[in-house]
Design a protein around this nucleic acid. Structure first.
Lengths: 240, 240
DNA sequence: CGAGAGGTTGAATGTACTCAAGCTGGGTGG
DNA sequence: CCACCCAGCTTGAGTACATTCAACCTCTCG
């Protein structure tokens, strides 16, 4: 948990994270308080209703944000990929439970120090604001999925979303759109909690996509998408 | 559409809106560019994918924010009550369709002028940020409802949310919690679009609540809640 | 080789949807 | 003043989609 292992200049998420578009001086100040932290798949990052000790950029891996009802029903309300920012500025309590969906590396900033720097550097606050707006857009987009899409459309939309976020990581290399290959960070049960479905329904829909040749499975977590346009059509109108 | 008809000092939403906690100077600058606009129930406030000409505080009435799928399926992704802020700062295109659910009064700020003032007064940007965080919280809370709650729980949760937001308006007077009376701004069809249900299901659930004495209807849009605690229980576990 | 977690598949069930008819209240015109 | 109309809402019957319950498969790990 020592100081960051790599300089910001060679950080994989430097440009897309809140650190993007900051001046050298601003970066330097953040760098001074940054510490890398590693979390094994399944480990808890942030407790519900807890006061988080730090903010963080996701550097590698996927973090899932979960809300739970009194009787145990769960809903994943957000997935964070590399370059996403973890933590609510100006809020003392976390509204969700954060857990490492895969092995995760975070670039953390101790709460008090971070808030002090933010107060003095308006550029950072602006970046945080933009990230929050992105999160809001994603949440409202997902509301449409949860409220109005069929199980088939939900699963197709989920695969598309993962494909898009994953291809961002490897720069624009995978932007060719043909023959996308992706690794699912989530189990079937987690996918179900993200889509508002049950495990069995998710499994059946994935099988159905496989049978129709829309996707090819290698094992249970590696998905190849031969024709992403076909999948896109299925994400909005399952009939097509 | 002239300049604001009332001074900020006597504005009904002054304290809770983005104008709250601003200095006299900051308020004065906003006031200088503020214009009231009225919208009849059902009229369009903002087109999907459009570049909005202004930002605004909701002063009276309710604004609904809608997203639509290719085949016409709709989902309301947000409801804005008095003191809520309309418009995405730093974004040029609106991600949703905004419509007056009831008669609405907005306190508008012309886009360019507003952005100039925001740039010069960090206090305002901070307030906008806080409002965006509230919106994100609400969206994620609603994701749980859409993904994991039953029809009965959804309708109960909806009534509770309206009760809470409405009682805020009349100060804390209605905070007594006993015998809450509220006016629904939304039609059954709009409630359905907010809850991810059909008209018929919403109607049946409301009827069921009525039969069980949890609510009393006066006409179709006025709801009396004799025992709000009972409704709260139904919002999380319909069995209870 | 056995155990167990994660995943798939099958059959039966149930919740919410669809389709359809009927009701209610406000507004209009005869 | 009443009859009529229409939109919004309610109610009913049948259906479909996703869920539940259960069995089985498959891989990994000890």
């Amino acid at each position: 948990m020592g100081p960051r292992q790599i300089p910001c200049s060679s950080c994989a998420v430097r440009n897309r994270s809140v650190c993007g578009a900051l001046s050298d001086d601003e970066i330097a100040r953040l760098n001074a308080i940054a510490h890398f932290k590693h979390f094994g798949a399944g480990s808890v990052i942030l407790l519900d209703h807890d006061e988080p000790g730090y903010f963080a950029n996701v550097v590698t891996g996927v973090v899932k944000l979960t809300k739970t009802l009194g009787d145990g029903r769960q809903q994943i309300v957000g997935l964070q990929f590399p370059s996403d920012f973890l933590g609510r500025p100006f809020r003392t309590r976390s509204p969700y439970f954060a857990e490492a969906a895969s092995d995760v590396t975070l670039c953390t900033f101790e709460r008090g120090q971070f808030e002090r720097i933010v107060k003095e550097t308006p550029g950072i606050e602006r970046r945080l604001f933009e990230h929050t707006l992105d999160e809001l857009d994603a949440a409202q987009e997902w509301m449409v999925l949860l409220g109005r899409k069929t199980a088939g459309e939900k699963v197709a939309s989920f695969l598309l979303m993962v494909a898009k976020r994953s291809s961002q990581e490897g720069c624009a290399a995978a932007a060719s759109l043909d023959l996308v290959k992706l690794e699912l960070a989530l189990s079937r049960s987690e996918i179900a909690d993200y889509l508002g479905l049950t495990i069995e329904t998710v499994s059946r829909q994935i099988t159905s996509l496989k049978r129709r040749g829309v996707i090819v499975l290698e094992g249970t977590r590696t998905v190849v998408i031969p024709d992403i346009v076909k999948l896109e059509r299925l994400a909005e109108q399952m009939a097509g």
